Simulated assay, not measured.
Amino acid sequence: MAIDLPFIWIAFKEIIKSVPITLILTIVPLVVGFLIGIVVAFVRIYKTKLLYQVANGYVSFFRGTPIIMHIMIIYYGIPLIVDQISSKYDLNIQSNKIPIVLFVLIALSLAAGAYLSEIIRSGIISVSNGQLEAAYSVGMTQFQAMFRIVLPQALAQSVANFTNIFVGFLHTSSIAFLVSEKELTGAANIVASTNLKFLEAFIAAGIIYWGLTVIVEGISFLLEKRVTSYSRGGVS
């Protein structure tokens, strides 16, 4: 069986239409996860009472279980809870009207928060205590020292790790097709099933994923060069 090269281009043009939803399934969870990650990181660093154990359990669970399981639990669990609450309190809410993409975004955001919290926490810890002491010596409060001195350096040092997470979630978004969300992999599967040319369709999808990854890595390189310029004695 020979590879149908012209069909790869046909599949490419059809599959690339799903890039926007793939980027949404990647960027939105990472933005929400970043906010969750900052909160969880500070809770764990300062060992906030009551919340510390909850934060540890959250990170342990979401980093210790596969993301596909998170999606399935959210996808099947939230509608069940919504229907029970709606029935109990006589609310006019139907779970089948909730967009499927929302379930996927919730699951991916919670998973991203756990992974990003560890990146942020390790970045903060890597900044020397001497910088905090210097900040205190010039009259800064703990909040000012953390957000003006420590956190910017921690995030700058973690650009490579953030890039890895971005690429990882870009690829992980492919799981969404299991709950009928038409992202890149789902689109490739649809194109392939209608023409029975699975190899060609997935080659096209692979090229698109690869191209997106190269773009992300290029942006990361430029960003890392920019944000770490202070350590080289100036801005380039």
Rank of each mutant, 00 (worst) to 15 (best):
Y58K: 09
S95R: 01
P29V: 01
N96P: 01
T22Y: 13
W9Y: 11
I38Y: 08
R232E: 13
I68Y: 12
F62E: 07
I8M: 12
S137Y: 00
F42E: 14
A154F: 12
S193Q: 11
R63E: 10
V31S: 06
A204Q: 05
M1W: 12
G206S: 10
P20S: 00
Q131C: 13
Q53G: 14
F169E: 01
D4F: 07
A135H: 04
T185G: 01
T65K: 03
F198W: 15
V31D: 03
G206C: 10
I93R: 02
I67T: 14
F147L: 12
I38L: 15
V19F: 04
A135F: 03
Y52F: 15
I15D: 04
A107P: 09
I81G: 04
I106F: 09
I219N: 01
A145N: 11
R121K: 12
K182G: 01
I24K: 12
Q94N: 11
H70N: 00
M1V: 12
E133R: 03
T26L: 05
V159P: 04
A2T: 09
E181L: 15
A204C: 08
N96L: 10
Y89D: 02
G206P: 07
E118L: 11
I175V: 13
F198I: 13
P66E: 03
P66F: 02
K17Y: 11
L222I: 12
F177M: 14
A134F: 10
A2D: 10
T172W: 05
I74V: 15
L91C: 07
R232H: 13
L91T: 07
A114V: 05
V59Q: 04
Y76N: 06
I120T: 08
I15T: 00
S137W: 00
P66Q: 00
L178K: 03
V54W: 14
L23S: 02
T194A: 05
S236D: 06
N189E: 12
S87G: 06
L151E: 06
G186F: 08
F202D: 07
A55S: 15
F162S: 03
F62G: 09
Q153K: 06
I24C: 08
V82D: 02
I36T: 07
L25A: 13
Q153H: 04
A176M: 05
A134E: 04
L23M: 14
V138A: 05
V28M: 04
E118C: 09
L184H: 02
K225R: 14
Q157E: 04
S95V: 02
Q53L: 15
L170Q: 04
F169P: 02
A111M: 02
N195Y: 12
F103C: 06
L223M: 12
I16L: 13
I106L: 13
S86E: 02
K88H: 12
I175K: 01
R226G: 07
S193Y: 07
I10K: 06
Q131G: 11
E200Q: 03
R232F: 14
P6S: 00
Q142G: 07
I15M: 04
